[in-house]
Simulated assay, not measured.
Amino acid sequence: MSYRFMRVMILFDLPVLTNEDLKTYRQFRRFLLKSGFIMMQESVYTKLALNNTVANSVMESIRKNKPNKGLVQMMLVTEKQFSRMEFVTGFGQTEYIDNDERLIDL
């Protein structure tokens, strides 16, 4: 079996004007974290997927758990494309193993 690591990126902008909005925001964010997403920056989360089939399954899960209001966008890129991301200013998080090493069971 050939592995082609993919990266699912979720970008969202949800309203937080009312208590109900805040509750929905927290629920969606908690869902992303429990699903294995890692926060890149505020309202931008990524998850490493083994291949395109797994990535599509992850994206379908997002569709099923989307909030009713706000904007949620998904983007699928290969791990090679993701690794070419340029940090113009600032730096990436180093607290987590956020590459294909986290998929390998030692």
Rank of each mutant, 00 (worst) to 15 (best):
residue 46 T to R: 01
residue 46 T to K: 00
residue 90 G to A: 05
residue 103 L to Q: 07
residue 83 S to Q: 11
residue 29 R to Y: 14
residue 74 M to P: 05
residue 68 N to I: 11
residue 27 Q to S: 14
residue 31 F to V: 06
residue 102 R to Q: 10
residue 33 L to M: 12
residue 64 K to A: 11
residue 83 S to D: 15
residue 56 N to Y: 13
residue 10 I to M: 09
residue 93 Q to L: 06
residue 35 S to L: 07
residue 71 L to N: 13
residue 79 E to V: 04
residue 24 T to K: 14
residue 80 K to R: 09
residue 6 M to S: 03
residue 7 R to E: 04
residue 53 T to G: 11
residue 1 M to P: 10
residue 48 L to D: 00
residue 26 R to C: 07
residue 42 E to T: 14
residue 13 D to Q: 01
residue 21 D to F: 07
residue 10 I to A: 09
residue 51 N to M: 14
residue 24 T to E: 15
residue 53 T to I: 15
residue 1 M to K: 14
residue 11 L to N: 07
residue 37 F to Y: 14
residue 95 E to Y: 04
residue 55 A to S: 09
residue 33 L to D: 05
residue 47 K to P: 04
residue 15 P to Q: 05
residue 18 T to I: 02
residue 90 G to K: 01
residue 26 R to D: 07
residue 23 K to L: 14
residue 64 K to Y: 05
residue 80 K to P: 00
residue 58 V to P: 04
residue 54 V to Y: 09
residue 82 F to W: 14
residue 4 R to L: 15
residue 17 L to T: 07
residue 40 M to R: 07
residue 52 N to I: 14
residue 70 G to S: 03
residue 82 F to T: 00
residue 25 Y to W: 13
residue 102 R to C: 11
residue 38 I to C: 10
residue 80 K to W: 02
residue 95 E to T: 07
residue 55 A to M: 10
residue 80 K to L: 10
residue 2 S to H: 15
residue 102 R to F: 06
residue 19 N to A: 11
residue 14 L to S: 08
residue 74 M to Q: 14
residue 106 L to T: 08
residue 55 A to H: 06
residue 47 K to L: 11
residue 43 S to R: 07
residue 80 K to N: 12
residue 17 L to H: 13
residue 56 N to S: 14
residue 29 R to D: 01
residue 1 M to D: 10
residue 102 R to K: 11
residue 61 S to P: 09
residue 84 R to K: 14
residue 20 E to L: 10
residue 52 N to G: 08
residue 94 T to W: 03
residue 8 V to L: 11
residue 90 G to E: 00
residue 8 V to W: 02
residue 104 I to T: 12
residue 82 F to V: 00
residue 80 K to F: 06
residue 104 I to D: 05
residue 19 N to I: 05
residue 86 E to A: 12
residue 31 F to W: 13
residue 14 L to P: 01
residue 24 T to Q: 13
residue 54 V to W: 08
residue 58 V to T: 12
residue 97 I to N: 08
residue 101 E to C: 04
residue 83 S to M: 10
residue 13 D to C: 04
residue 41 Q to G: 04
